[in-house]
Amino acid sequence: MTLPSANSVRRGFDTPAATITLDETARHRRRMRMVSDRLENGSTITFLLDLPQARLLCHGDGLVLDDGRIIEVRAEPEPLMEVRGSDARHLLSLAWQIGNRHLAAEITETMIRLRRDHVIRDMLIGLGATVQDIEAPFVPEGGAYGGVHASHHHDDHDHGHSHD
């Protein structure tokens, strides 16, 4: 049996055939077998995501199946930390510290969201940040070269500076 394929992503559509709820990591994909959330009748739609390039699927995107049906992407709430500074300059300094550790971060004018990490929490609190645990969809900034900046281990490469 051949699975239907989703080869494109669309914004703005009518009623979807189904939804699929994914965390941020699972929303950054190019090609993989996926299964929708359960429909009212208890069934699911199994399909192949087959996009031309990897991309972050956003809440509300529609995966267009080759038979015309649309699967709506929903961003799953994740355990995050919401970081706030005492003022804009302090928040900017906190953002620099987070960026220096190559952490995926969602940034607004008033706060930064990160995946929960007790070591990073302690560092940020030590720098005067207010840190609150929340559950929310995670939509980190895209990377400098057009993609989502995935976390990586510093032992995997040399980039000319130390994180000690």
Rank of each mutant, 00 (worst) to 15 (best):
C58E: 11
S162G: 00
D122A: 12
E141S: 07
H90N: 01
G12P: 12
D122E: 10
G85N: 02
R11V: 09
G160N: 11
A95N: 15
P52V: 00
G99N: 15
T19W: 01
I120T: 13
D23E: 05
I112H: 12
P137W: 00
S43G: 15
R84Q: 07
R55G: 02
F13T: 04
S8C: 05
G146N: 13
H118G: 00
I134C: 07
E141I: 02
R74N: 09
L48M: 15
T130I: 05
V131I: 05
R69M: 02
L22I: 04
E106N: 06
N7A: 04
I20L: 12
E109S: 10
R55Q: 10
N100S: 13
D50G: 07
R89E: 15
T110P: 03
H118Q: 10
D155W: 08
M34F: 06
V148D: 03
L3H: 13
T21H: 12
E106H: 06
P52E: 00
L57R: 01
L22E: 11
G12A: 11
H90M: 03
H163G: 06
A136L: 06
D87S: 03
E82F: 00
A144I: 08
D37E: 07
A95Y: 12
R74T: 04
R38V: 08
G62L: 03
R29D: 10
M123Q: 14
A129I: 04
G68R: 05
P140Y: 01
E109I: 01
D155L: 04
D61T: 03
D61Y: 02
D155Y: 09
M81I: 06
V139L: 11
H102L: 14
P4K: 08
S36P: 06
A54L: 00
G42Y: 05
M123T: 10
E40I: 03
E78Y: 04
R74D: 06
R89F: 10
A104Y: 00
G147K: 12
L63W: 01
D156C: 09
D66F: 02
S5T: 11
M111E: 13
D133P: 13
G85F: 02
A6V: 01
V35D: 00
F138T: 03
I134Q: 06
F47W: 09
E82V: 06
I70N: 01
M123K: 14
E106R: 08
V64H: 07
S162Q: 05
R30L: 03
D23G: 07
S86V: 10
G62P: 06
L48Q: 15
H149I: 08
A129K: 08
L63D: 02
A105M: 14
S162I: 04
Q97T: 11
R74S: 06
V35H: 00
R69E: 08
L48S: 09
H90Y: 02
W96T: 14
D158G: 11
M123I: 14
Q132V: 15
G147W: 02
L3T: 06
V119H: 13
I70Q: 01
V35C: 00
W96K: 15
L56E: 09
V64W: 08
V148L: 14
V83K: 07
M1G: 15
L51M: 03
R27Y: 00
G142W: 01
N100M: 14
D156A: 14
T25K: 10
L127V: 03
L114A: 11
N7G: 07
V83P: 10
R116A: 10
D158P: 07
G42I: 11
V83I: 10
N7F: 04
G160L: 09
E76F: 00
L124N: 08
